[in-house]
Each structure stands twice: as C-alpha cells, then as structure tokens.
Amino acid sequence: MPKQSHMKPGKRKRIQSYLYTIKNSESPKVSVIIPVMNERRTIAAVIRHAYRVHPETEVIVVANGSTDGSAELAQKIGARVIRYDHPLGHDVGRSIGAREAKGEILLFTDGDIIIPTRDLVPLIKAVNNGVDVALNKYLGPTDKQHVHSVILAKHTLNIIVSNPDLKGASMTTIPHAISRRARDLIGSEQLAIPPKAQAIALYNGLNVQGVHYVEVGKTNPRRGRRKGNDPLEQLIVGDHLEAIDWFITKSGERGNRYDLSRNRESV
C-alpha cells in the first residue's frame, strides 16, 4: 500500500499553484541538458537549480520512455521538452539535447540527482574562462585495492590518451559543461558515448579539465543494479573500449608512443 500523504487531498492543489516556473531565455548563454526517464520526484528541483546557473539560461529536458508524467511536469515548469515514447538508451538523450542547444555553454546533468546551483556555477565559469570541457572531479571510491571496473576504465582512458593528470575525471560523470566549440568539434552525435567524446576532445587538443568536485556517488540511486551483475558497468566499460579503439585508429597502433628502438626482426 502506498504511503499516505499527511495533507488532505484538498490542500494538494495549493502546492501545485506554488509550482516554480521558469522562462527559457530567447538567446541563451547557457543550455542545460537534462535527460529524463521516470524522475517525477526530483525533476522539478533539478530544473530549478539548473535554471539559476546564469541569467540567460535555457533548460532542455529530453524525456525518453517516460511514463510517470515527468515530461508533463517539466513542460509545466517551463522547460523545453523533447519527447520520445521509447527509452533511447544511456546518454543518447545528452546527444539529442546537445544537438538542439542554442547556448554558448552546454551543461549536462541528470534528472535523478539534485545538484545545487553553487556546484554547477564553477563549471560554467570555467568554460567561460576558456576551458573547453569542464569536468566533475569526482572519481568514485579509489582508496581501495580493487576498484570498480568503470573507475579503472576511466583512469586507463586518460592515461592512454596521454592526459593522466585528469586521473578518473570523465564525461561519463555528471555534471559537466562543454563549450559550443567543443560540441561542434566533437560532434553532438558522439556525445552519446561520453568516453569517446572525451577521447576526441583530448586528441584534438581541447582544454579538458577537472574543475570542481561534486559528490555524485552517494546520491546516485542504484536502480536494478545487483552485485556482480551490473549491465551499466558492462556498457560503460564497453564505451571506454570503443573510445580506445577510436584513439588507436587515429594515432597508430602504439598510441603515439615509441618503443625505445626494439629490434623486432631479431626474433
């Protein structure tokens, strides 16, 4: 049985009338892209916090496979909603949102994690000051012997593309912001596979930096993820392999590294 609300049914209407509404800017400086599936509980707060990052902001909600009315709620709040009836798959929403974005700075976040405005502003500021891709510095739990495969993959990718100082900072992690230049260079379609987008950015010499630490591990709900069987883990590791594959095709089989004059013919 669902939990009963303490409020009387009649009072609910009053809350609805207090609904925080936004007005997307006509010529936005910042576009916030929020992929949403079924996140009715959090979406209003996410939009509210995201909208306040800059005076000229547009919020784009990419609702896919949403059945709980989150899309309608977002619409009511005043966000621009791009709607798909079927789930698009992980991160595809970002790519579609990025394609539609009009702002100079693109900020990516998620519909299920409420990130306060104060944690989003540093990313916007960094991009405004010349960083092309401003990442969350959150690495996940690394102070242990055996780390999660996703953390390992993120670190490895940065090492392979010769930017080990980024450690495990990744475009897979939200929130992050990119400049419009970066979007055009990477290509919005590549943003659906964030590690690949990152590899492209780094390979093309874009300024990629871990800018601000936002703890997103504890607040990230572990939906349908059981120990030992995590489909998302498989997907993200696969993404990193795809990124490495792309990098190898671009930079040669040793990734621009010499082999200290090996005499391979000797064998």
Partner: peptide, 20 residues
C-alpha cells in the same frame, strides 16, 4: 579489438544510436 570487435565482450544493445 581487432580480434573481437570494437567493444570486445561488452556490447551495446541499449542505445538507439540512429537517433543521434
């Protein structure tokens, strides 16, 4: 990657990449 494809044994069945 040459032997087993660009994602090794981690295929991506979830994404609808055409839409991007």
């Amino acid at each position: 990657l040459e032997r087993k494809g660009s994602r090794l044994s981690y295929p991506d069945h979830i994404r609808q990449r055409k839409l991007t």
